[in-house]
Protein backbone atom coordinates (compact mmCIF):
# COMPACT_ATOMS: atom_id res chain seq x y z
CA UNK A 1 0.00 0.00 0.00
CA UNK A 2 1.34 3.42 -0.97
CA UNK A 3 0.56 5.77 1.86
CA UNK A 4 -0.35 9.37 1.09
CA UNK A 5 -1.10 12.18 3.45
CA UNK A 6 -4.78 11.76 2.55
CA UNK A 7 -4.76 8.31 4.12
CA UNK A 8 -4.56 10.01 7.51
CA UNK A 9 -7.76 11.94 6.80
CA UNK A 10 -10.63 10.95 9.09
CA UNK A 11 -13.43 12.84 7.33
CA UNK A 12 -16.80 11.08 7.47
CA UNK A 13 -15.57 8.81 10.27
CA UNK A 14 -17.47 8.73 13.51
CA UNK A 15 -15.27 8.51 16.60
CA UNK A 16 -16.35 7.78 20.16
CA UNK A 17 -13.88 8.93 22.78
CA UNK A 18 -14.90 7.14 25.97
CA UNK A 19 -13.43 8.86 28.99
CA UNK A 20 -12.65 12.57 29.15
CA UNK A 21 -9.28 12.07 30.86
CA UNK A 22 -6.37 14.35 29.99
CA UNK A 23 -5.38 11.93 27.22
CA UNK A 24 -9.00 11.49 26.12
CA UNK A 25 -9.42 15.22 25.51
CA UNK A 26 -6.10 15.44 23.67
CA UNK A 27 -6.88 12.48 21.43
CA UNK A 28 -10.41 13.75 20.76
CA UNK A 29 -8.94 17.06 19.62
CA UNK A 30 -6.49 15.29 17.31
CA UNK A 31 -9.17 13.09 15.74
CA UNK A 32 -11.56 16.03 15.39
CA UNK A 33 -8.95 18.22 13.72
CA UNK A 34 -8.30 15.34 11.30
CA UNK A 35 -11.93 15.43 10.24
CA UNK A 36 -13.68 12.87 12.46
CA UNK A 37 -17.17 13.46 13.81
CA UNK A 38 -16.75 13.25 17.57
CA UNK A 39 -18.80 11.88 20.41
CA UNK A 40 -17.40 12.26 23.92
CA UNK A 41 -18.60 10.26 26.87
CA UNK A 42 -17.71 10.09 30.54
CA UNK A 43 -19.43 9.04 33.74
CA UNK A 44 -19.13 12.65 34.95
CA UNK A 45 -21.29 15.19 33.09
CA UNK A 46 -19.05 18.07 34.17
CA UNK A 47 -16.03 16.46 32.57
CA UNK A 48 -17.92 15.96 29.30
CA UNK A 49 -18.91 19.65 29.27
CA UNK A 50 -15.39 20.79 30.13
CA UNK A 51 -13.98 18.62 27.33
CA UNK A 52 -16.52 20.00 24.86
CA UNK A 53 -15.56 23.55 25.86
CA UNK A 54 -11.86 22.81 25.41
CA UNK A 55 -12.47 21.38 21.94
CA UNK A 56 -14.79 24.23 20.99
CA UNK A 57 -12.08 26.75 21.87
CA UNK A 58 -9.96 24.98 19.24
CA UNK A 59 -12.79 25.10 16.72
CA UNK A 60 -13.77 21.45 17.04
CA UNK A 61 -17.40 20.49 17.68
CA UNK A 62 -18.22 17.36 19.64
CA UNK A 63 -21.42 15.68 20.80
CA UNK A 64 -21.43 14.74 24.47
CA UNK A 65 -23.02 11.76 26.23
CA UNK A 66 -22.62 11.74 30.02
CA UNK A 67 -22.90 8.02 30.68
CA UNK A 68 -21.92 5.68 33.46
CA UNK A 69 -20.95 2.12 32.58
CA UNK A 70 -21.62 -0.36 35.37
CA UNK A 71 -21.76 -3.47 33.21
CA UNK A 72 -21.69 -4.94 29.73
CA UNK A 73 -25.25 -3.89 28.87
CA UNK A 74 -24.45 -0.24 29.61
CA UNK A 75 -21.61 -0.25 27.11
CA UNK A 76 -23.94 -1.67 24.45
CA UNK A 77 -26.45 1.09 25.29
CA UNK A 78 -23.75 3.74 24.88
CA UNK A 79 -22.73 2.41 21.47
CA UNK A 80 -26.41 2.16 20.47
CA UNK A 81 -26.88 5.83 21.27
CA UNK A 82 -23.88 6.79 19.14
CA UNK A 83 -25.12 4.65 16.26
CA UNK A 84 -28.66 6.08 16.58
CA UNK A 85 -27.45 9.66 16.38
CA UNK A 86 -24.51 9.24 13.98
CA UNK A 87 -25.59 6.16 11.95
CA UNK A 88 -22.36 4.27 12.64
CA UNK A 89 -19.18 4.05 14.69
CA UNK A 90 -15.79 3.82 12.97
CA UNK A 91 -13.35 4.67 15.72
CA UNK A 92 -13.38 3.97 19.44
CA UNK A 93 -10.83 5.50 21.80
CA UNK A 94 -10.90 3.97 25.28
CA UNK A 95 -9.46 6.70 27.46
CA UNK A 96 -11.21 6.09 30.77
CA UNK A 97 -8.60 5.63 33.50
CA UNK A 98 -7.97 6.13 37.19
CA UNK A 99 -4.56 6.17 38.90
CA UNK A 100 -4.20 5.63 42.62
CA UNK A 101 -0.81 6.24 44.27
CA UNK A 102 -0.87 3.84 47.22
CA UNK A 103 1.31 1.03 48.64
CA UNK A 104 0.06 -2.44 47.67
CA UNK A 105 -0.22 -3.64 51.26
CA UNK A 106 -2.61 -0.81 52.15
CA UNK A 107 -4.87 -1.01 49.11
CA UNK A 108 -8.41 -1.91 50.19
CA UNK A 109 -10.53 -4.48 48.39
CA UNK A 110 -12.83 -1.66 47.29
CA UNK A 111 -9.96 0.42 45.87
CA UNK A 112 -8.60 -2.61 44.06
CA UNK A 113 -12.04 -3.45 42.66
CA UNK A 114 -12.72 0.12 41.53
CA UNK A 115 -9.36 0.35 39.77
CA UNK A 116 -10.06 -2.87 37.85
CA UNK A 117 -13.59 -1.74 37.06
CA UNK A 118 -12.60 1.60 35.54
CA UNK A 119 -9.27 0.67 33.97
CA UNK A 120 -10.01 -2.83 32.74
CA UNK A 121 -13.60 -4.05 32.84
CA UNK A 122 -15.25 -0.94 31.41
CA UNK A 123 -12.63 -0.88 28.67
CA UNK A 124 -13.46 -4.48 27.76
CA UNK A 125 -17.21 -3.99 27.73
CA UNK A 126 -16.82 -0.90 25.56
CA UNK A 127 -14.58 -2.90 23.18
CA UNK A 128 -17.23 -5.64 23.09
CA UNK A 129 -20.04 -3.23 22.28
CA UNK A 130 -18.12 -1.23 19.67
CA UNK A 131 -16.57 -4.44 18.31
CA UNK A 132 -19.97 -6.07 17.82
CA UNK A 133 -21.14 -3.11 15.75
CA UNK A 134 -17.87 -2.80 13.81
CA UNK A 135 -17.68 -6.55 13.06
CA UNK A 136 -21.17 -6.40 11.60
CA UNK A 137 -20.04 -3.56 9.32
CA UNK A 138 -16.70 -5.22 8.56
CA UNK A 139 -14.58 -2.25 9.55
CA UNK A 140 -13.42 -0.23 12.50
CA UNK A 141 -10.45 0.82 14.58
CA UNK A 142 -10.22 0.60 18.35
CA UNK A 143 -7.50 2.43 20.26
CA UNK A 144 -6.97 1.56 23.91
CA UNK A 145 -5.04 3.78 26.25
CA UNK A 146 -2.36 1.76 27.96
CA UNK A 147 0.60 2.96 30.02
CA UNK A 148 4.26 2.20 30.61
CA UNK A 149 2.97 0.69 33.86
CA UNK A 150 1.50 -2.12 31.71
CA UNK A 151 4.91 -3.56 30.95
CA UNK A 152 7.27 -2.10 33.54
CA UNK A 153 6.95 -2.21 37.29
CA UNK A 154 6.42 1.03 39.22
CA UNK A 155 5.85 0.94 42.97
CA UNK A 156 2.60 2.06 44.62
CA UNK A 157 0.49 1.66 41.50
CA UNK A 158 -0.59 -1.97 41.64
CA UNK A 159 -4.28 -1.63 40.70
CA UNK A 160 -3.49 0.64 37.77
CA UNK A 161 -0.52 -1.41 36.56
CA UNK A 162 -2.40 -4.70 36.76
CA UNK A 163 -5.35 -3.24 34.86
CA UNK A 164 -3.13 -1.82 32.14
CA UNK A 165 -1.34 -5.16 31.83
CA UNK A 166 -4.79 -6.61 31.24
CA UNK A 167 -5.59 -3.90 28.70
CA UNK A 168 -2.49 -4.84 26.68
CA UNK A 169 -3.48 -8.52 26.63
CA UNK A 170 -7.03 -7.51 25.71
CA UNK A 171 -5.58 -5.49 22.84
CA UNK A 172 -3.53 -8.42 21.54
CA UNK A 173 -6.37 -10.90 22.01
CA UNK A 174 -8.99 -8.80 20.23
CA UNK A 175 -6.36 -7.73 17.71
CA UNK A 176 -5.77 -11.30 16.54
CA UNK A 177 -9.41 -12.32 16.93
CA UNK A 178 -11.00 -9.56 14.86
CA UNK A 179 -8.48 -8.46 12.21
CA UNK A 180 -9.73 -10.85 9.53
CA UNK A 181 -13.17 -9.34 9.97
CA UNK A 182 -11.90 -5.82 9.38
CA UNK A 183 -11.70 -4.56 12.94
CA UNK A 184 -8.32 -3.50 14.26
CA UNK A 185 -7.42 -3.10 17.92
CA UNK A 186 -4.25 -1.33 19.04
CA UNK A 187 -3.02 0.55 22.09
CA UNK A 188 -0.87 3.53 22.94
CA UNK A 189 1.35 3.29 26.00
CA UNK A 190 2.73 6.53 27.36
CA UNK A 191 3.31 8.39 30.58
CA UNK A 192 -0.11 9.02 32.02
CA UNK A 193 -0.88 11.85 34.39
CA UNK A 194 -0.55 9.56 37.40
CA UNK A 195 2.92 8.23 36.61
CA UNK A 196 4.21 11.69 35.74
CA UNK A 197 2.95 13.03 39.04
CA UNK A 198 4.30 10.09 40.99
CA UNK A 199 7.78 10.14 39.48
CA UNK A 200 8.07 13.92 39.65
CA UNK A 201 10.54 16.13 37.85
CA UNK A 202 13.56 13.98 38.70
CA UNK A 203 11.98 10.98 36.93
CA UNK A 204 12.50 12.74 33.62
CA UNK A 205 16.27 12.45 33.93
CA UNK A 206 16.13 8.78 32.96
CA UNK A 207 14.13 9.47 29.81
CA UNK A 208 16.26 9.64 26.62
CA UNK A 209 14.15 12.54 25.32
CA UNK A 210 14.88 14.41 28.55
CA UNK A 211 11.23 14.97 29.41
CA UNK A 212 8.01 13.03 29.86
CA UNK A 213 5.90 12.56 26.74
CA UNK A 214 2.59 14.23 27.58
CA UNK A 215 -0.95 13.74 26.33
CA UNK A 216 -0.39 16.02 23.31
CA UNK A 217 2.55 13.81 22.29
CA UNK A 218 0.11 10.90 21.79
CA UNK A 219 -1.96 12.71 19.16
CA UNK A 220 -0.02 11.76 16.01
CA UNK A 221 -0.04 8.09 17.01
CA UNK A 222 -3.79 8.16 17.62
CA UNK A 223 -4.48 9.67 14.19
CA UNK A 224 -2.25 7.03 12.61
CA UNK A 225 -3.96 4.17 14.44
CA UNK A 226 -7.43 5.52 13.63
CA UNK A 227 -6.73 5.97 9.94
CA UNK A 228 -6.26 3.89 6.79
CA UNK A 229 -2.51 4.52 7.09
CA UNK A 230 -2.35 1.74 9.70
CA UNK A 231 -4.60 -0.71 7.80
CA UNK A 232 -2.31 -3.71 8.43
CA UNK A 233 -1.69 -3.00 12.11
CA UNK A 234 -3.52 -4.86 14.83
CA UNK A 235 -2.81 -6.11 18.34
CA UNK A 236 0.11 -3.68 18.65
CA UNK A 237 1.15 -1.55 21.60
CA UNK A 238 2.92 1.63 20.51
CA UNK A 239 5.13 3.15 23.18
CA UNK A 240 5.13 6.94 23.08
CA UNK A 241 7.50 7.49 25.95
CA UNK A 242 10.48 9.56 24.80
CA UNK A 243 12.52 6.38 24.35
CA UNK A 244 12.25 5.24 27.97
CA UNK A 245 11.23 1.61 27.36
CA UNK A 246 13.81 1.21 24.58
CA UNK A 247 16.67 1.42 27.08
Amino acid sequence: MNVRACDFDLSERVALVAGCSEAGVSLALALGQSGAELVLSDSCAGRVQAAQATLEAEGVAAAGIPFQIDGRDDAFELVNRVVSSHAKLDILVNAQEQFLDKPAVDLTTEEWGYSLHVNLKVVFWTCQAAGKHMLARGEGSIINLSSLAASLGFPNSVGFAVSKGGVEQMTRTLGVEWIRRGVRVNAIAGWGEGLRRQLGATGAERIPMGRFANAADLEGTAIYLASRASAALSGQIIHVDGGYSAQ
Binding site: A149, A161, V162
Partner: peptide
Protein backbone atom coordinates in the same frame (compact mmCIF):
# COMPACT_ATOMS: atom_id res chain seq x y z
CA UNK B 1 -0.97 -15.57 27.22
CA UNK B 2 0.49 -13.16 29.75
CA UNK B 3 2.29 -11.78 26.73
CA UNK B 4 0.99 -13.37 23.52
CA UNK B 5 -2.51 -12.72 22.21
CA UNK B 6 -5.02 -15.54 21.68
CA UNK B 7 -8.39 -15.37 19.98
CA UNK B 8 -11.55 -16.19 21.92
CA UNK B 9 -10.08 -16.12 25.44
CA UNK B 10 -10.44 -12.47 26.39
CA UNK B 11 -10.92 -12.91 30.13
CA UNK B 12 -8.13 -15.45 30.49
CA UNK B 13 -5.58 -13.45 28.46
CA UNK B 14 -6.49 -10.22 30.22
CA UNK B 15 -6.20 -11.80 33.64
CA UNK B 16 -2.86 -13.39 32.81
CA UNK B 17 -1.49 -10.17 31.32
CA UNK B 18 -2.50 -8.51 34.56
CA UNK B 19 -0.76 -11.26 36.54
CA UNK B 20 2.50 -10.35 34.80
CA UNK B 21 2.07 -6.75 35.88
CA UNK B 22 1.05 -7.72 39.40
CA UNK B 23 4.28 -9.70 39.58
CA UNK B 24 6.51 -6.87 38.35
CA UNK B 25 4.82 -4.19 40.44
CA UNK B 26 5.08 -6.14 43.68
CA UNK B 27 8.65 -7.23 42.85
CA UNK B 28 9.75 -3.61 42.62
CA UNK B 29 7.69 -2.43 45.55
CA UNK B 30 8.70 -5.23 47.93
Amino acid sequence: FSSAGIAESPAYAMSKGAVAQLTKTLAIEW
